[in-house]
Design a protein around this nucleic acid. Structure first.
Lengths: 99, 99
DNA sequence: CCCCTTGTTCGAAAATTTACGAACTTTAAT
DNA sequence: ATTAAAGTTCGTAAATTTTCGAACAAGGGG
C-alpha cells in the first residue's frame, strides 16, 4: 500500500511530542493503542472523517509516538513504547494513567 | 496592578497541559523558571514583544503550570511544582531534563 | 474481472494560535 | 507632578491546525 516513514526518536524535541499530544482525538488514539497493543485505523475509538484521522495518525507518527505497518488493506498502529520511553521517560505512563 | 486567576490543577486535562508545553518560547520559559525559581516577565530568556510574552504567560497560567504574584510594577512567576507534580507526575522532571 | 474495504492525497474552508504595535494602567522613583 | 518601568488589553495580520469531501491506489474476495 504505502511505506511509512518513522523518525529517529532522538531527533524529536520534547515540544514536538507535546504538540502531538495536545489534541483530544490524538490523546484518545494513544490511550486506545496503549490499551490494545495494535489497532487498525478503523478500529480506533474516534468519530472523525477518514481524511482527518489520516492526518492525526501522521502527526503521531512524525512525532515518533507510533509505528505503522501494513497488513493487507489495513495498516496496524502501535505505540513505540521502548524507544519513546527511553527518550521521554514517564510520558507514556502519564498518558495511560492521567485524566 | 491586576489579579491573576489560577485554575484548580485537578480541572486541567492532560492535553491542555501538553498544549501549553507545545511551544518553544513557553518551553524556554518553563525551563528558566524551573532553574531560577521565580522570575519577572522581563527577566525571562525570550526575545519576543511584550504583548506576545503576556499571551504566553497567560497560556501557561491557564494550564495550571505557573503561578503569578504581583510585586510593585513587576509580576513574579514561578512553577506550581507541588500541585502540578501531583496531578501529572514526572512531567516537570521531563521538562527539566529532556532535550 | 468487478466490487468492497482500507487508507492516502489533494484541495479548500474554518478555526485556532502566534505575533506585534499602540494605547492604557499601575507603581515607583526623581 | 513628571517620568520611567512593567505588564495588560485591543485590534489585527500572519501562520498553523483542524476538518472534510472527492478522487485516488492497493489488496482481498466473489
Amino acid at each position: 500500500m504505502k511505506t511509512y516513514e518513522h523518525p529517529e526518536i532522538e531527533s524529536i524535541p520534547l515540544e514536538k511530542a507535546m504538540h502531538a499530544l495536545s489534541d483530544s482525538s490524538r490523546m484518545v488514539i494513544m490511550r486506545a493503542l496503549l490499551a490494545h497493543g495494535e489497532l487498525a485505523c478503523n478500529e480506533l475509538p474516534v468519530e472523525i472523517a477518514k481524511a482527518t484521522l489520516s492526518h492525526h495518525m501522521g502527526v503521531l507518527r512524525e512525532a515518533g509516538l507510533i509505528v505503522t505497518r501494513v497488513e493487507g488493506t489495513k495498516c496496524l498502529n502501535a505505540v513505540r513504547k521502548e524507544a519513546f520511553d527511553l527518550q521521554f521517560p514517564g510520558l507514556l505512563e502519564l498518558i495511560r494513567t492521567c485524566v
